[in-house]
Lab assay of single mutants.
Amino acid sequence: CHSECLGNCSQPDDPTKCVACRNFYLDGRCVETCPPPYYHFQDWRCVNFSFCQDLHHKCKNSRRQGCHQYVIHNNKCIPECPSGYTMNSSNLLCTPCLGPCPKVCHLLEGEKTIDSVTSAQELRGCTVINGSLIINIRGGNNLAAELEANLGLIEEISGYLKIRRSYALVSLSFFRKLRLIRGETLEIGNYSFYALDNQNLRQLWDWSKHNLTITQGKLFFHYNPKLCLSEIHKMEEVSGTKGRQERNDIALKTNGDQASCENELLKFSYIRTSFDKILLRWEPYWPPDFRDLLGFMLFYKEAPYQNVTEFDGQDACGSNSWTVVDIDPPLRSNDPKSQNHPGWLMRGLKPWTQYAIFVKTLVTFSDERRTYGAKSDIIYVQTDATNPSVPLDPISVSNSSSQIILKWKPPSDPNGNITHYLVFWERQAEDSELFELDYCLKGLKLPSRTWSPPFESEDSQKHNQSEYEDSAGECCSCPKTDSQILKELEESSFRKTFEDYLHNVVFVPRKT
Protein backbone atom coordinates (compact mmCIF):
# COMPACT_ATOMS: atom_id res chain seq x y z
CA CYS A 1 0.00 0.00 0.00
CA HIS A 2 0.96 3.63 -0.45
CA SER A 3 2.76 5.27 2.49
CA GLU A 4 -0.26 7.56 3.09
CA CYS A 5 -2.60 4.58 3.48
CA LEU A 6 -3.61 3.32 6.90
CA GLY A 7 -5.01 -0.14 7.58
CA ASN A 8 -5.32 -1.54 4.07
CA CYS A 9 -5.79 -0.69 0.40
CA SER A 10 -7.47 -2.10 -2.71
CA GLN A 11 -4.55 -1.38 -5.08
CA PRO A 12 -0.80 -1.21 -4.35
CA ASP A 13 1.06 2.11 -4.25
CA ASP A 14 -2.05 4.17 -5.04
CA PRO A 15 -3.09 6.93 -2.56
CA THR A 16 -6.63 6.93 -4.00
CA LYS A 17 -7.27 3.27 -3.09
CA CYS A 18 -6.68 3.49 0.67
CA VAL A 19 -9.17 2.14 3.20
CA ALA A 20 -8.25 5.03 5.52
CA CYS A 21 -5.78 7.91 5.37
CA ARG A 22 -2.75 8.19 7.60
CA ASN A 23 -2.86 12.03 7.58
CA PHE A 24 -5.45 13.96 5.51
CA TYR A 25 -8.11 13.26 2.90
CA LEU A 26 -8.45 15.58 -0.13
CA ASP A 27 -10.76 15.00 -3.11
CA GLY A 28 -10.60 11.19 -2.98
CA ARG A 29 -6.89 10.80 -2.22
CA CYS A 30 -4.72 10.65 0.90
CA VAL A 31 -2.15 13.44 1.30
CA GLU A 32 0.53 14.22 3.86
CA THR A 33 -0.68 17.79 4.40
CA CYS A 34 -3.30 20.10 2.92
CA PRO A 35 -1.85 22.24 0.10
CA PRO A 36 -2.95 25.87 -0.40
CA PRO A 37 -5.69 27.02 -0.65
CA TYR A 38 -7.01 24.18 1.54
CA TYR A 39 -7.17 24.04 5.35
CA HIS A 40 -6.98 21.23 7.89
CA PHE A 41 -10.39 20.33 9.29
CA GLN A 42 -10.93 18.07 12.33
CA ASP A 43 -7.41 16.62 11.83
CA TRP A 44 -8.38 14.38 8.87
CA ARG A 45 -9.95 16.40 6.04
CA CYS A 46 -8.85 19.20 3.73
CA VAL A 47 -11.50 21.89 3.13
CA ASN A 48 -11.49 25.19 1.24
CA PHE A 49 -12.33 28.67 2.56
CA SER A 50 -15.94 28.53 1.35
CA PHE A 51 -16.61 25.38 3.37
CA CYS A 52 -15.28 26.96 6.58
CA GLN A 53 -17.14 30.22 5.88
CA ASP A 54 -20.44 28.36 5.37
CA LEU A 55 -20.03 26.66 8.76
CA HIS A 56 -19.35 30.04 10.38
CA HIS A 57 -22.42 31.76 8.90
CA LYS A 58 -24.69 28.76 9.50
CA CYS A 59 -24.00 28.88 13.25
CA LYS A 60 -24.10 32.69 13.38
CA ASN A 61 -27.52 32.85 11.71
CA SER A 62 -29.05 29.96 13.66
CA ARG A 63 -28.10 31.35 17.11
CA ARG A 64 -28.22 27.83 18.47
CA GLN A 65 -26.48 27.28 21.77
CA GLY A 66 -23.46 25.01 21.49
CA CYS A 67 -22.70 25.48 17.79
CA HIS A 68 -19.32 26.85 16.71
CA GLN A 69 -18.58 29.80 14.46
CA TYR A 70 -15.56 28.30 12.72
CA VAL A 71 -12.47 30.45 12.10
CA ILE A 72 -9.10 30.01 10.37
CA HIS A 73 -5.84 29.82 12.31
CA ASN A 74 -2.45 28.29 11.41
CA ASN A 75 -3.82 26.80 8.16
CA LYS A 76 -6.65 25.11 10.09
CA CYS A 77 -10.42 25.54 10.18
CA ILE A 78 -11.12 25.40 13.94
CA PRO A 79 -14.21 26.04 16.14
CA GLU A 80 -12.83 29.21 17.79
CA CYS A 81 -9.70 31.32 18.09
CA PRO A 82 -7.16 30.20 20.71
CA SER A 83 -6.44 32.24 23.81
CA GLY A 84 -4.83 35.59 23.01
CA TYR A 85 -6.39 35.87 19.52
CA THR A 86 -9.53 37.45 18.12
CA MET A 87 -11.34 36.91 14.81
CA ASN A 88 -11.09 39.30 11.86
CA SER A 89 -14.68 39.37 10.56
CA SER A 90 -13.63 40.09 6.95
CA ASN A 91 -11.52 36.96 6.39
CA LEU A 92 -12.23 34.81 9.50
CA LEU A 93 -8.50 34.84 10.37
CA CYS A 94 -7.43 34.82 14.03
CA THR A 95 -5.23 37.83 14.79
CA PRO A 96 -3.34 38.58 18.04
CA CYS A 97 -5.21 40.79 20.50
CA LEU A 98 -3.90 44.23 21.37
CA GLY A 99 -4.32 44.04 25.12
CA PRO A 100 -7.10 41.92 26.67
CA CYS A 101 -9.05 39.94 24.08
CA PRO A 102 -12.72 40.76 23.48
CA LYS A 103 -15.25 38.14 24.49
CA VAL A 104 -18.41 38.08 22.37
CA CYS A 105 -21.48 36.72 24.16
CA HIS A 106 -24.41 35.64 21.97
CA LEU A 107 -27.78 35.91 23.71
CA LEU A 108 -30.52 33.35 23.20
CA GLU A 109 -33.63 34.84 21.57
CA GLY A 110 -31.64 38.05 21.02
CA GLU A 111 -32.06 39.51 24.52
CA LYS A 112 -31.37 38.81 28.19
CA THR A 113 -33.04 40.13 31.34
CA ILE A 114 -30.79 40.90 34.30
CA ASP A 115 -33.05 40.63 37.35
CA SER A 116 -30.55 39.39 39.96
CA VAL A 117 -26.86 39.08 40.71
CA THR A 118 -27.02 35.44 39.59
CA SER A 119 -28.24 36.37 36.10
CA ALA A 120 -25.56 39.07 35.88
CA GLN A 121 -22.86 36.50 36.70
CA GLU A 122 -23.73 34.64 33.48
CA LEU A 123 -22.25 37.59 31.53
CA ARG A 124 -19.07 37.85 33.59
CA GLY A 125 -16.09 38.67 31.36
CA CYS A 126 -18.19 39.56 28.29
CA THR A 127 -16.96 42.59 26.35
CA VAL A 128 -19.39 42.49 23.40
CA ILE A 129 -23.09 41.63 23.81
CA ASN A 130 -24.59 40.27 20.60
CA GLY A 131 -28.18 41.13 21.46
CA SER A 132 -30.09 43.41 23.83
CA LEU A 133 -29.96 43.82 27.61
CA ILE A 134 -32.90 44.48 29.93
CA ILE A 135 -32.00 45.55 33.49
CA ASN A 136 -34.84 44.88 35.95
CA ILE A 137 -33.38 44.67 39.46
CA ARG A 138 -35.69 45.25 42.43
CA GLY A 139 -33.25 44.52 45.29
CA GLY A 140 -30.20 42.67 46.57
CA ASN A 141 -27.08 42.98 48.70
CA ASN A 142 -24.00 44.93 47.64
CA LEU A 143 -25.55 45.44 44.22
CA ALA A 144 -23.29 48.18 42.85
CA ALA A 145 -20.11 46.18 43.44
CA GLU A 146 -21.62 42.91 42.16
CA LEU A 147 -22.97 44.48 38.97
CA GLU A 148 -19.66 46.19 38.25
CA ALA A 149 -17.76 42.93 38.78
CA ASN A 150 -20.00 41.07 36.31
CA LEU A 151 -21.04 43.73 33.78
CA GLY A 152 -18.19 46.21 34.09
CA LEU A 153 -16.22 44.86 31.10
CA ILE A 154 -19.03 45.24 28.55
CA GLU A 155 -17.91 47.69 25.86
CA GLU A 156 -20.52 47.20 23.15
CA ILE A 157 -24.18 46.19 22.86
CA SER A 158 -25.42 45.35 19.37
CA GLY A 159 -29.12 45.80 20.23
CA TYR A 160 -30.75 48.11 22.76
CA LEU A 161 -30.32 48.76 26.51
CA LYS A 162 -33.47 48.89 28.62
CA ILE A 163 -33.56 49.95 32.30
CA ARG A 164 -37.02 49.11 33.62
CA ARG A 165 -38.37 49.27 37.19
CA SER A 166 -34.91 48.83 38.69
CA TYR A 167 -35.70 50.35 42.07
CA ALA A 168 -32.34 49.31 43.51
CA LEU A 169 -30.24 51.32 41.04
CA VAL A 170 -28.87 54.76 41.84
CA SER A 171 -26.46 55.02 38.91
CA LEU A 172 -25.47 53.17 35.73
CA SER A 173 -21.77 53.65 36.45
CA PHE A 174 -21.40 49.86 36.87
CA PHE A 175 -21.33 49.83 33.03
CA ARG A 176 -17.93 51.47 33.40
CA LYS A 177 -16.59 50.43 29.97
CA LEU A 178 -19.75 50.70 27.86
CA ARG A 179 -18.82 52.85 24.85
CA LEU A 180 -21.19 51.81 22.04
CA ILE A 181 -24.87 50.89 21.61
CA ARG A 182 -25.39 49.96 17.97
CA GLY A 183 -29.18 49.76 17.96
CA GLU A 184 -29.27 47.02 15.31
CA THR A 185 -32.36 45.74 17.17
CA LEU A 186 -34.66 48.41 18.61
CA GLU A 187 -37.28 48.42 21.33
CA ILE A 188 -40.86 49.04 20.19
CA GLY A 189 -40.98 52.67 19.09
CA ASN A 190 -37.45 52.66 17.63
CA TYR A 191 -35.69 53.16 20.97
CA SER A 192 -32.11 52.02 21.57
CA PHE A 193 -31.96 53.34 25.18
CA TYR A 194 -35.07 52.95 27.32
CA ALA A 195 -35.46 54.08 30.96
CA LEU A 196 -38.87 53.58 32.56
CA ASP A 197 -40.03 53.83 36.20
CA ASN A 198 -36.71 53.80 38.04
CA GLN A 199 -37.61 55.39 41.36
CA ASN A 200 -34.07 55.90 42.71
CA LEU A 201 -32.00 56.44 39.55
CA ARG A 202 -30.07 59.69 40.07
CA GLN A 203 -27.16 59.46 37.65
CA LEU A 204 -26.57 57.83 34.28
CA TRP A 205 -22.78 58.20 34.02
CA ASP A 206 -20.17 60.74 35.01
CA TRP A 207 -20.10 62.46 31.63
CA SER A 208 -16.82 64.21 32.37
CA LYS A 209 -15.11 60.80 32.30
CA HIS A 210 -17.42 58.61 30.19
CA ASN A 211 -18.10 58.59 26.44
CA LEU A 212 -21.06 56.75 24.92
CA THR A 213 -22.09 56.55 21.27
CA ILE A 214 -25.55 55.40 20.15
CA THR A 215 -25.46 54.60 16.43
CA GLN A 216 -29.17 54.13 15.77
CA GLY A 217 -32.41 54.68 17.62
CA LYS A 218 -33.86 57.19 20.08
CA LEU A 219 -33.85 57.78 23.84
CA PHE A 220 -36.87 57.14 26.08
CA PHE A 221 -37.16 58.55 29.64
CA HIS A 222 -40.39 58.37 31.67
CA TYR A 223 -41.13 58.17 35.41
CA ASN A 224 -37.60 58.61 36.73
CA PRO A 225 -38.44 61.06 39.55
CA LYS A 226 -34.90 61.52 40.89
CA LEU A 227 -33.12 61.84 37.53
CA CYS A 228 -32.56 65.49 36.63
CA LEU A 229 -33.43 66.62 33.13
CA SER A 230 -29.96 68.15 32.83
CA GLU A 231 -28.51 64.64 33.12
CA ILE A 232 -30.73 63.43 30.26
CA HIS A 233 -29.88 66.40 28.03
CA LYS A 234 -26.18 65.81 28.67
CA MET A 235 -26.61 62.21 27.48
CA GLU A 236 -28.24 63.49 24.28
CA GLU A 237 -25.19 65.64 23.55
CA VAL A 238 -22.56 63.02 24.41
CA SER A 239 -24.23 60.04 22.69
CA GLY A 240 -25.03 61.89 19.46
CA THR A 241 -28.80 61.40 19.74
CA LYS A 242 -29.74 65.07 20.07
CA GLY A 243 -32.49 65.89 17.60
CA ARG A 244 -33.68 62.29 17.16
CA GLN A 245 -36.20 62.37 20.01
CA GLU A 246 -39.80 63.40 19.54
CA ARG A 247 -41.70 65.57 21.99
CA ASN A 248 -43.08 62.77 24.17
CA ASP A 249 -39.94 60.63 24.30
CA ILE A 250 -38.53 62.54 27.29
CA ALA A 251 -41.20 63.47 29.84
CA LEU A 252 -40.69 66.90 31.41
CA LYS A 253 -43.07 66.28 34.33
CA THR A 254 -42.13 62.76 35.46
CA ASN A 255 -38.33 63.01 35.25
CA GLY A 256 -36.57 64.82 38.09
CA ASP A 257 -39.80 65.94 39.75
CA GLN A 258 -38.54 64.64 43.14
CA ALA A 259 -34.86 65.46 42.64
CA SER A 260 -32.68 68.16 44.08
CA CYS A 261 -31.13 69.23 40.82
CA GLU A 262 -28.31 71.48 41.90
CA ASN A 263 -27.80 74.34 39.49
CA GLU A 264 -25.18 76.28 41.47
CA LEU A 265 -21.62 75.43 42.45
CA LEU A 266 -20.54 75.49 46.10
CA LYS A 267 -16.93 76.52 46.62
CA PHE A 268 -14.81 75.71 49.65
CA SER A 269 -13.42 78.85 51.29
CA TYR A 270 -11.20 77.35 54.02
CA ILE A 271 -9.40 74.02 54.46
CA ARG A 272 -7.08 73.17 57.34
CA THR A 273 -5.67 69.77 58.25
CA SER A 274 -4.03 67.97 61.14
CA PHE A 275 -3.05 64.31 61.45
CA ASP A 276 -6.58 63.20 62.42
CA LYS A 277 -8.84 66.17 61.62
CA ILE A 278 -9.90 68.29 58.65
CA LEU A 279 -11.62 71.65 59.13
CA LEU A 280 -13.77 72.76 56.19
CA ARG A 281 -15.71 75.92 55.42
CA TRP A 282 -17.61 76.79 52.27
CA GLU A 283 -19.41 79.77 50.82
CA PRO A 284 -22.94 80.37 52.12
CA TYR A 285 -25.89 79.47 49.95
CA TRP A 286 -29.51 80.54 50.30
CA PRO A 287 -32.40 79.68 47.94
CA PRO A 288 -34.87 82.45 46.96
CA ASP A 289 -36.95 81.50 50.00
CA PHE A 290 -34.32 80.94 52.71
CA ARG A 291 -36.78 78.77 54.65
CA ASP A 292 -36.42 76.08 51.95
CA LEU A 293 -32.83 75.38 53.03
CA LEU A 294 -32.88 72.49 55.50
CA GLY A 295 -29.11 72.14 55.78
CA PHE A 296 -26.05 70.66 54.12
CA MET A 297 -24.85 67.12 53.60
CA LEU A 298 -21.09 66.48 53.78
CA PHE A 299 -19.86 63.33 52.01
CA TYR A 300 -16.37 61.93 52.51
CA LYS A 301 -14.45 58.66 52.17
CA GLU A 302 -10.90 57.38 51.81
CA ALA A 303 -9.63 57.78 48.25
CA PRO A 304 -6.15 56.45 47.43
CA TYR A 305 -6.61 57.67 43.83
CA GLN A 306 -8.24 60.80 42.49
CA ASN A 307 -10.82 59.03 40.33
CA VAL A 308 -13.88 59.02 42.61
CA THR A 309 -17.41 59.82 41.42
CA GLU A 310 -20.42 60.72 43.55
CA PHE A 311 -22.37 57.50 43.03
CA ASP A 312 -19.53 54.98 43.26
CA GLY A 313 -20.63 51.97 45.33
CA GLN A 314 -24.15 53.28 46.00
CA ASP A 315 -27.44 51.49 45.54
CA ALA A 316 -30.94 52.04 46.88
CA CYS A 317 -30.75 48.99 49.17
CA GLY A 318 -28.46 50.59 51.74
CA SER A 319 -24.99 50.13 50.29
CA ASN A 320 -23.07 53.40 50.39
CA SER A 321 -19.31 53.81 50.42
CA TRP A 322 -19.57 57.46 51.52
CA THR A 323 -19.77 58.68 55.10
CA VAL A 324 -22.55 61.28 55.31
CA VAL A 325 -22.79 64.10 57.88
CA ASP A 326 -25.89 66.30 58.22
CA ILE A 327 -25.09 69.93 59.01
CA ASP A 328 -27.57 72.60 60.09
CA PRO A 329 -27.66 75.85 58.12
CA PRO A 330 -25.92 78.86 59.74
CA LEU A 331 -27.76 81.81 61.17
CA ARG A 332 -28.93 84.11 58.40
CA SER A 333 -27.78 87.72 58.44
CA ASN A 334 -29.39 90.60 56.58
CA ASP A 335 -25.94 91.95 55.70
CA PRO A 336 -24.43 89.91 52.83
CA LYS A 337 -20.89 90.88 53.90
CA SER A 338 -21.31 89.45 57.39
CA GLN A 339 -22.79 86.12 56.34
CA ASN A 340 -21.40 83.20 58.32
CA HIS A 341 -19.64 80.55 56.27
CA PRO A 342 -21.00 77.10 57.14
CA GLY A 343 -18.44 74.43 57.94
CA TRP A 344 -17.59 71.21 59.73
CA LEU A 345 -14.71 69.68 61.67
CA MET A 346 -14.10 66.10 60.52
CA ARG A 347 -12.71 64.02 63.40
CA GLY A 348 -11.29 60.55 63.87
CA LEU A 349 -9.52 60.40 60.52
CA LYS A 350 -6.48 58.32 59.64
CA PRO A 351 -3.09 60.07 59.49
CA TRP A 352 -1.42 60.55 56.12
CA THR A 353 -4.56 59.45 54.24
CA GLN A 354 -6.21 61.09 51.24
CA TYR A 355 -9.95 61.71 51.47
CA ALA A 356 -12.48 62.57 48.75
CA ILE A 357 -14.93 65.22 49.97
CA PHE A 358 -17.93 67.07 48.57
CA VAL A 359 -20.88 68.94 50.05
CA LYS A 360 -24.40 69.54 48.75
CA THR A 361 -27.48 71.37 49.96
CA LEU A 362 -30.66 69.82 51.29
CA VAL A 363 -33.67 71.90 50.20
CA THR A 364 -37.42 71.49 50.06
CA PHE A 365 -39.40 71.85 46.85
CA SER A 366 -40.67 75.29 46.02
CA ASP A 367 -44.28 76.04 45.27
CA GLU A 368 -43.40 76.85 41.65
CA ARG A 369 -42.18 73.21 41.22
CA ARG A 370 -38.70 74.56 40.52
CA THR A 371 -35.77 72.82 42.10
CA TYR A 372 -32.98 74.80 43.66
CA GLY A 373 -29.76 73.68 45.22
CA ALA A 374 -26.00 73.77 45.11
CA LYS A 375 -23.23 71.19 45.16
CA SER A 376 -19.46 71.37 45.29
CA ASP A 377 -16.98 69.55 43.12
CA ILE A 378 -15.25 66.54 44.65
CA ILE A 379 -12.01 67.68 46.28
CA TYR A 380 -9.15 65.59 47.63
CA VAL A 381 -7.55 66.45 50.98
CA GLN A 382 -4.76 64.55 52.71
CA THR A 383 -4.30 64.50 56.46
CA ASP A 384 -0.92 65.32 57.99
CA ALA A 385 1.72 62.83 59.03
CA THR A 386 2.35 61.92 62.66
CA ASN A 387 4.52 59.57 64.70
CA PRO A 388 4.47 56.01 63.40
CA SER A 389 3.61 53.05 65.55
CA VAL A 390 6.46 50.98 66.99
CA PRO A 391 8.41 48.59 64.73
CA LEU A 392 7.20 45.01 64.92
CA ASP A 393 8.95 41.80 65.96
CA PRO A 394 12.42 43.08 66.94
CA ILE A 395 15.07 40.34 66.94
CA SER A 396 18.61 40.69 68.33
CA VAL A 397 21.33 38.08 67.85
CA SER A 398 25.03 38.27 68.78
CA ASN A 399 27.17 36.61 66.13
CA SER A 400 30.56 37.50 67.69
CA SER A 401 32.14 39.04 70.80
CA SER A 402 31.83 42.55 69.37
CA GLN A 403 28.67 42.55 67.20
CA ILE A 404 24.91 42.41 67.68
CA ILE A 405 22.60 41.95 64.70
CA LEU A 406 19.23 43.70 65.10
CA LYS A 407 16.28 43.04 62.80
CA TRP A 408 12.66 44.24 62.81
CA LYS A 409 9.57 44.60 60.65
CA PRO A 410 8.05 47.94 59.56
CA PRO A 411 5.35 49.40 61.81
CA SER A 412 1.75 48.46 61.09
CA ASP A 413 0.77 52.16 60.94
CA PRO A 414 3.55 54.19 59.29
CA ASN A 415 1.43 57.39 59.46
CA GLY A 416 3.66 58.99 56.83
CA ASN A 417 6.73 58.32 54.73
CA ILE A 418 9.31 56.53 56.89
CA THR A 419 12.76 57.75 55.84
CA HIS A 420 14.95 56.25 58.57
CA TYR A 421 14.93 54.47 61.94
CA LEU A 422 16.61 55.52 65.20
CA VAL A 423 18.39 52.76 67.12
CA PHE A 424 19.30 53.38 70.79
CA TRP A 425 21.43 51.09 72.93
CA GLU A 426 22.96 51.13 76.40
CA ARG A 427 25.71 49.02 77.92
CA GLN A 428 24.58 46.98 80.91
CA ALA A 429 26.62 45.53 83.78
CA GLU A 430 27.73 41.90 83.43
CA ASP A 431 25.55 39.33 85.18
CA SER A 432 27.01 38.35 88.58
CA GLU A 433 25.83 34.81 87.90
CA LEU A 434 28.63 34.36 85.38
CA PHE A 435 31.28 34.99 88.10
CA GLU A 436 29.71 32.82 90.82
CA LEU A 437 29.24 29.66 88.75
CA ASP A 438 31.60 26.68 89.13
CA TYR A 439 32.53 25.96 85.55
CA CYS A 440 34.10 22.60 86.48
CA LEU A 441 30.71 21.05 87.22
CA LYS A 442 29.65 18.45 84.68
CA GLY A 443 26.50 19.06 82.70
CA LEU A 444 26.65 22.77 83.33
CA LYS A 445 24.75 24.75 80.74
CA LEU A 446 26.11 28.25 80.34
CA PRO A 447 23.62 31.12 80.28
CA SER A 448 22.89 32.17 76.73
CA ARG A 449 21.92 35.57 75.49
CA THR A 450 21.02 34.47 71.97
CA TRP A 451 17.47 35.16 70.87
CA SER A 452 14.97 32.36 70.85
CA PRO A 453 11.49 32.72 69.35
CA PRO A 454 8.64 33.08 71.82
CA PHE A 455 6.33 30.13 72.20
CA GLU A 456 3.05 29.52 73.88
CA SER A 457 3.07 27.42 76.99
CA GLU A 458 0.88 24.40 77.31
CA ASP A 459 -1.12 26.16 80.01
CA SER A 460 -1.93 29.06 77.73
CA GLN A 461 -2.95 26.70 74.95
CA LYS A 462 -5.23 24.83 77.31
CA HIS A 463 -6.74 28.11 78.45
CA ASN A 464 -7.36 29.21 74.87
CA GLN A 465 -8.92 25.88 73.99
CA SER A 466 -11.16 25.80 77.05
CA GLU A 467 -14.74 26.83 76.64
CA TYR A 468 -15.19 27.51 80.33
CA GLU A 469 -13.65 29.95 82.73
CA ASP A 470 -10.96 28.40 84.89
CA SER A 471 -11.00 28.46 88.65
CA ALA A 472 -8.50 31.31 88.90
CA GLY A 473 -10.63 33.49 86.66
CA GLU A 474 -7.76 34.26 84.26
CA CYS A 475 -9.52 33.14 81.06
CA CYS A 476 -13.10 33.16 79.90
CA SER A 477 -14.96 31.84 76.88
CA CYS A 478 -15.42 34.05 73.84
CA PRO A 479 -18.93 35.39 73.17
CA LYS A 480 -20.84 33.42 70.55
CA THR A 481 -21.47 34.98 67.17
CA ASP A 482 -24.94 35.47 65.69
CA SER A 483 -24.35 32.62 63.22
CA GLN A 484 -23.36 30.24 66.05
CA ILE A 485 -26.44 31.17 68.07
CA LEU A 486 -28.67 30.70 65.00
CA LYS A 487 -27.08 27.31 64.27
CA GLU A 488 -27.68 26.14 67.85
CA LEU A 489 -31.32 27.22 67.65
CA GLU A 490 -31.77 25.32 64.38
CA GLU A 491 -30.17 22.18 65.86
CA SER A 492 -32.38 22.42 68.95
CA SER A 493 -35.49 22.82 66.79
CA PHE A 494 -34.45 19.84 64.66
CA ARG A 495 -33.95 17.64 67.75
CA LYS A 496 -37.42 18.52 69.03
CA THR A 497 -39.02 17.83 65.65
CA PHE A 498 -37.18 14.52 65.31
CA GLU A 499 -38.16 13.46 68.83
CA ASP A 500 -41.82 14.24 68.09
CA TYR A 501 -41.54 12.21 64.88
CA LEU A 502 -40.13 9.20 66.78
CA HIS A 503 -42.94 9.34 69.32
CA ASN A 504 -45.53 9.45 66.55
CA VAL A 505 -43.98 6.50 64.68
CA VAL A 506 -42.98 4.22 67.58
CA PHE A 507 -46.01 4.71 69.78
CA VAL A 508 -49.12 3.72 67.83
CA PRO A 509 -52.56 3.94 69.47
CA ARG A 510 -53.94 0.49 70.38
CA LYS A 511 -56.98 -0.51 68.41
CA THR A 512 -60.07 -0.74 70.60
Rank of each mutant, 00 (worst) to 15 (best):
I395Q: 05
Y191R: 08
P288L: 08
L151R: 00
G140S: 13
P329E: 05
K218Q: 04
E264R: 10
G110E: 13
E283R: 14
L298M: 13
G256M: 06
S396I: 04
S119H: 13
W282I: 03
R370G: 15
E231R: 10
Q306E: 05
W207H: 06
R179P: 00
Q199Y: 06
N190Q: 12
Q216F: 12
G125A: 13
L294R: 03
N198S: 04
S239V: 14
Y305K: 03
P329Y: 03
Q339E: 03
R164H: 15
P336S: 07
D393C: 15
F268M: 05
I405G: 12
N211P: 08
N190K: 15
S173E: 11
D292N: 12
S274P: 00
G159S: 03
D393H: 07
L201S: 00
Y305L: 13
L172P: 02
C261A: 09
H106Q: 12
Q203K: 12
I395L: 11
I157A: 01
N190Y: 07
S396L: 15
W282C: 01
S376T: 10
V397I: 14
L294F: 07
G140Q: 14
I357E: 00
S396P: 15
S166M: 14
T241C: 14
N142V: 07
D335N: 06
L252P: 08
L265Y: 08
I129W: 04
P342Q: 06
D393A: 15
F220M: 15
E368D: 14
F311H: 12
W282N: 01
C105E: 01
I114V: 11
G240L: 15
E109I: 06
F290S: 12
C105T: 00
P329S: 05
G256Y: 06
L147R: 01
G243K: 13
L229G: 03
L227F: 02
I163A: 02
T353S: 12
E122T: 06
L133F: 04
C317F: 15
C317I: 14
K177F: 06
A195V: 10
L212F: 13
T241I: 09
V363I: 14
M235W: 03
L298Q: 00
I278S: 00
P388M: 04
W286G: 11
N136M: 03
G256P: 04
A374V: 05
K242A: 05
K360C: 08
L108K: 09
D249Q: 03
R370P: 11
W207I: 05
D249T: 15
K253Q: 12
K209W: 08
L265S: 11
N150V: 03
E302Y: 03
N307S: 10
R332T: 12
R182H: 10
D335V: 06
Y194G: 12
E283Y: 07
L186R: 13
F193S: 00
F311W: 15
A120T: 12
F220Q: 02
C228Q: 05
V104K: 08
R369W: 12
V117A: 14
Y191P: 08
E146L: 04
N211A: 13
G348P: 12
S321L: 12
K301F: 04
R244L: 13
S269R: 08
T273E: 05
R370L: 06
S400E: 15
L143P: 06
C105A: 00
M297C: 08
T254K: 11
L280M: 12
P304R: 14
L123E: 01
D206A: 14
P329W: 04
G295D: 05
E302L: 09
E262L: 02
N200K: 14
Q203H: 03
N387R: 08
Q354K: 04
A168R: 15
I379C: 13
I157W: 00
P342N: 08
T361Y: 10
I405T: 04
N142P: 12
K218R: 11
W352M: 13
L180Q: 07
P391V: 06
I114K: 00
Q382E: 10
H341N: 13
P330G: 05
L362R: 06
L204A: 13
E155Q: 06
R176D: 03
F365A: 04
L229P: 02
G159I: 00
I379G: 02
Q382R: 11
G125K: 11
Y372Q: 06
L180M: 05
C105R: 01
T273P: 03
R281Y: 14
Q245P: 12
D115A: 04
T383A: 02
R244C: 06
N150R: 08
K253L: 11
L294E: 07
G131T: 02
R124L: 10
Y194E: 14
F311L: 07
P411F: 02
F174N: 02
T127F: 13
E231L: 11
S119T: 05
N340P: 07
S192V: 09
G343T: 15
K218N: 02
V117L: 12
G110P: 04
G295N: 11
G110V: 04
T241H: 09
I357H: 00
L406N: 04
N248M: 12
N263Y: 03
L108P: 13
W286C: 14
I271S: 06
F268I: 03
E246W: 02
F358S: 10
F358K: 09
R176C: 09
Q382C: 04
S260N: 02
W344A: 12
P336L: 06
L362M: 10
G152V: 02
E237I: 12
G189E: 13
N150K: 14
P351V: 07
W205Q: 01
C261Q: 03
N334S: 08
S389Q: 04
I114M: 08
K301D: 08
V324C: 08
D367V: 15
E146D: 07
L180N: 04
Y300E: 00
K112G: 09
I379Q: 14
C126P: 00
P351Q: 06
S116H: 08
S119F: 04
L331I: 12
H222K: 01
L172E: 00
D315V: 08
R182S: 09
F311G: 07
Y160H: 14
E246Q: 15
E236F: 13
V397S: 13
V390G: 02
T118W: 07
A385V: 03
G343K: 14
I163M: 11
K162F: 15
I214G: 01
G313S: 07
T213L: 07
Q306S: 14
E155I: 14
R138L: 13
E146A: 13
L252N: 12
R281L: 07
L252M: 10
P351L: 02
G159A: 03
L212E: 00
S338Q: 09
N130Y: 03
N334I: 05
G139E: 13
N307V: 12
E146R: 09
F268D: 00
S132A: 07
W205G: 05
K337D: 15
K218T: 15
Q258Y: 15
G140C: 15
S402P: 03
T273I: 08
N255G: 04
L123C: 05
L406T: 13
T371Q: 12
Q382I: 14
G152H: 10
L172S: 02
L172V: 13
Q258W: 13
W408T: 00
L298Y: 01
T185W: 10
I250P: 08
S376F: 00
S338I: 05
L172I: 15
I188W: 03
T361N: 05
N399W: 08
K407G: 05
S230K: 14
K242Y: 11
C126Y: 02
L147P: 01
T371N: 09
N334F: 03
P284L: 15
P411A: 08
G217E: 00
E156L: 06
